[in-house]
């Protein structure tokens, strides 16, 4: 297994939240695979994806948690909010109801994450401008009032998708640089990777023989 030095210096934990069918999983897939998945299977519970990006010369691994949008899953997905460094809150610009629910998602995000968590509002499906139901200005105003970063994206065309993930990472990195994010606190959602990984067996009491293949 990869026991050597990590090829990235930070891990940022992200969560993606928003109503059902707004394209959360597609955004993630577009970001990690750079492909649009037309029949992307819906998320059952929680799924995750990773990608290593570079910000200011630092390699950063994004650990992205994609949550199920159906209301009944909210209770079980809540435990993944905690300790997130970034939260991507997604709505569908062609469905106003998904925009109207943002306040509830924002409440959850604010309550369950730490004050330094960067919350990024994403209006997805901006390729479907003809069916637009929520104007850019309106959402921009909502974002400004609540101190959120905001972009309209399209998981289909890939427009702005990179930017949304990267801008979030830049903002988090900036928070680290100016000291407002405490790296020692696990709730920051950021892990600084030392050059050599800690050996888990050091602190563990005698590891189980049968279970250990090393």
């Amino acid at each position: 297994m990869a026991a050597g030095p990590y090829n990235y210096s930070y891990i940022f934990k992200y969560i993606i939240i928003g109503d059902m069918g707004v394209g959360k999983s597609c955004l993630l897939h577009q970001f990690t695979e750079k492909k649009f998945m037309a029949d992307c299977p819906h998320t059952i519970g929680v799924e995750f994806g990773t990608r290593i990006i570079e910000v200011a010369g630092q390699k950063i691994k994004l650990q992205i948690w994609d949550t199920a949008g159906q209301e009944r899953f909210r209770a079980v997905t809540r435990s993944y909010y905690r300790g997130a460094a970034g939260a991507l809150m997604v709505y569908d610009i062609t469905r106003r109801s998904t925009y109207n629910h943002l306040s509830s998602w924002l409440t959850d995000a604010r309550n369950l994450t730490n004050p330094n968590t960067v919350i990024f509002l994403i209006g997805n499906k901006c390729d479907l401008d003809a069916q637009r139901d929520v104007t850019f200005e309106e959402a921009k105003q909502f974002a400004d009032e609540n101190g959120l970063m905001f972009l309209e994206c399209s998981a289909k065309t890939g427009e702005n998708v990179e930017d949304a993930f990267l801008d979030t990472a830049k903002k988090i990195y900036q928070n680290i640089q100016d000291g407002s994010l405490d790296l020692n606190a696990a709730e920051s959602g950021v892990q600084h990777k030392p050059a050599t990984p800690r050996n888990p067996l050091n602190t563990d009491q005698t590891p189980n023989k049968e279970g250990c293949a090393c």
Binding site: M1, F48, T50, K61, R198, P200, P207, G211, C212, C214
Partner: peptide, 17 residues
Amino acid sequence: RRIMNVPSADEFYTLMG
């Protein structure tokens, strides 16, 4: 057996993927 070799939660998730 394979999970026992993983040194961190992050790598656990990657391996499980």
